[in-house]
Design a protein around this nucleic acid. Structure first.
Length: 597
RNA sequence: GCACCCGUAGCUCAGCUGGAUAGAGCGUUGCCCUCCGAAGGCAAAGGUCAGAGGUUCGAAUCCUCUCGGGUGCGCCA
């Protein structure tokens, strides 16, 4: 295969061949022209005995072609058999076409991997389109706790995945620094300030933040202002103390994120929407009002949970129902300030104004009821030109040996993210958070994730990578000059006689490698990074199995002392596995170790 | 009451956006290994995909209803 496609995507290549076969049939008049080919897929068969790949082309096209699926399959098969990639094509079941590829195809796949290394699997489907991924966005009122960490890891991995798939990704954090919560923060900090000046403040009153983490803020304020704020009225110190506290909280949060190997490109301040020369929230409301999407009106009282101080009044409403939401949503509070929703509309409008037509928000499960209104708002504010996909991450149940972990009172009744990362490491946290679909609740067992056993997926996958390097180290008895550096080693192994990899288990492993680019694209399109984690687990599993086979069947060992040729080819296979494991782990933000300690 | 998410093996979960005989790990049971490549291997049992209808060549997947669990429901973010 000399005309390797830009994506090194074997499944995409074969799909092209199938399209070509259909086009040829159309030209001969055996098929109507202008058929919709987009529903045709080429996928791995459930059972390996069915061949290397299967396509549903005949079944999908049969109706429009006004023929029976199996008859049409017959014609497509004739074309496909003439293809230089395809060894054999057979019809099965209701009209599946099972394809067996020519053996050299697998050597070509490995050649691609050896050429591209960790870049294998990189895709261009994103076409450099801009995507904004907003995640974490925790309130700047304290350190991050475990509840935040799943969304943080998920968002970060999704951003990496989209980037790997060819999107131009911006990682963004929305700082909620404008609501009443940050005023509470400021009042809490002022108390710590008085404490730092030597005053006995007693117990922290209800409604204020009790955590010790505000003590450094108090000390910093004392150092900067002496006792000048003690007697000042709140109006004088509030803004100043608030800014200081938010600044220091954000520093702390950035530190927490850094411990998880997470960084954002943009930290967007909610306050910046209304401070300074322009009031972006007012502008946005005016914009919507001109479109007729904002009006003054009344809302029926909410059902279910009774609202204590409910008051039927006329208010400023966004016509969310015109865009798929269940009720219209208020934009102003009774005190005249904007609702959080109003700010959020303006905020998402700035994303659009900054050129993002693709947006992804990562939220906690408790915000699920908020999705419709924000999507409605984005439709209104961008005239349908932008899309927002909201990914909900479910709760994490923190366990230790199966028992729920008690909350630590000191930090203010929550387990901090830092405590967890310090205990089990960023790799374990990240991988386990991603080894589950985002919308399923997750049990996270502090004891199990650091276990060095097959039962621990983090270890299992990382050990696969390390085992590859262990094989390289042992291989130096046969190839003393096997290079240490990745690129050189890939080149060294790339000249191996890869066609000698012909044992069914070796081919099976190569088939798995060929699946990687397809997995990357599917995961990126679906916004589901967990698919990468599961793929890596499967790949590692198959690699370990092959290694183990060498115990009973010495001829299958990677290193065959009296046969440098086959050893080199198998080392190339190991290199392929190592490269893809490293690639996937990098996408997930997990370290790929060269040895386990 | 309404909206959204979920329901798959004893347990924890995948299932590639509608494909073939629904998979994996744990647990259970039975063998093998425990010298040549430590952090084991092989195999078996185990299913009304919550239930009932519908859509079509074909449904765990899409639609409707029912049951069961979670989340949320002006002026918190």
């Amino acid at each position: 295969m000399t005309d390797s496609s830009p994506s090194q995507h074997l499944f995409a290549d074969v799909l092209v061949r199938v399209h070509r076969a259909c086009a040829a049939l159309a030209e001969e008049g055996a098929l109507p022209s202008g058929l919709d080919l987009t529903r045709i897929v080429v996928e791995p068969p459930r059972d390996a005995s069915h061949g290397d790949m299967a396509t549903n082309a005949a079944m999908v096209l049969a109706k429009d072609a006004k023929t029976k699926p199996r008859d049409l399959a017959e014609r497509i098969v004739t074309k496909l058999r003439a293809d230089d990639l395809i060894e054999n094509a057979e019809i099965a079941g209701p009209g599946f076409i099972n394809l067996t590829l020519k053996l050299p195809v697998w050597a070509d796949v490995l050649r691609d991997v050896l050429r591209d290394g960790e870049g294998f699997g990189r895709s261009a489907i994103g076409a450099d389109e801009k995507v904004n991924v907003e995640y974490v966005s925790a309130n700047p009122t304290g350190p991050m706790h475990v509840g935040h960490c799943r969304g943080a890891v998920f968002g970060d991995a999704l951003a990496s995945l989209l980037s790997f798939a060819g999107y131009d990704v911006t990682r963004e954090y929305y700082i909620n620094d404008a609501g009443s919560q940050v005023d509470v923060l400021a009042r809490s900090a002022l108390l710590r300030y008085r404490e730092a000046l030597g005053e006995d403040i007693g117990a922290i009153p209800d409604g204020l933040y009790p955590g010790d983490y505000l003590k450094p803020v108090g000390q910093a304020l004392a150092a900067e202002h002496g006792d000048s704020l003690v007697k000042a009225p709140e109006a004088e110190w509030l803004g100043l103390v608030r800014a200081k506290a938010i600044g220091m909280m954000m520093e702390m949060i950035r530190g927490d994120l850094a411990a998880l190997n997470i960084r954002h490109d943009v930290f967007f301040s909610e306050r910046s929407l209304i401070e300074g020369s322009a009031d972006r929230v007012a502008e946005t409301i005016d914009f919507l009002r001109e479109k007729g999407d904002v009006y003054e009106g009344r809302l029926p009282p909410p059902k279910g949970a009774p609202v204590e101080d409910y008051e039927d009044r006329e208010q400023t409403l966004f016509r969310a129902t015109a865009y798929g939401d269940d009720v219209d949503r208020p934009l102003k509070k009774s005190d005249g300030g904007y609702t959080y929703f109003a700010s959020d509309i303006a905020y998402h409008k700035t994303k659009f104004d900054r050129g993002f037509h693709n947006m992804v928000d990562v939220w906690g499960a408790d915000h699920g009821g908020y999705i419709k209104r924000v999507q409605a708002a984005i439709k209104a504010v961008t005239s349908g030109q932008a899309t927002l996909d909201v990914k909900i991450v479910q709760l994490v149940k923190l366990l230790r040996n199966g028992e729920p972990v008690k909350m630590s009172k000191r930090a203010g009744d929550f387990v901090t993210l830092r405590e967890v990362v310090d205990e089990v490491g960023s790799d374990a946290v990240r991988f386990m958070m991603l080894f589950r679909k985002n919308d399923a609740v997750l049990d996270f067992d502090l004891a199990k994730v650091i276990e060095q056993s097959k039962d621990n997926p983090v270890f299992y996958v990382q050990y696969g990578h390390a085992r590859g390097f262990s094989i390289f180290r042992n291989a130096r008895e046969v190839f003393p000059d096997l290079p240490e550096a990745d690129a050189e080693r890939r080149q060294f192994l790339g000249i191996a006689d890869l066609e000698r990899l012909s044992d069914p288990v070796e081919i099976s492993l190569l088939r798995r490698l060929a699946l990687y680019p397809r997995t990357v694209e599917a995961a990126a399109v679906a916004h589901e990074p967990h698919r990468i984690a599961f793929y890596l687990y499967d790949l590692a599993s198959e690699f370990h199995a092959l290694w183990t086979k060498g115990r009973d069947l010495p001829h299958l060992r990677f290193i065959i002392n009296n046969d440098a040729q086959i050893t080199r080819a198998r080392l190339a296979l190991v290199q392929g596995v190592v490269a893809v494991l490293a690639s996937g782990l990098t996408v997930l933000g997990v370290h790929a170790p060269t040895e386990m300690r």
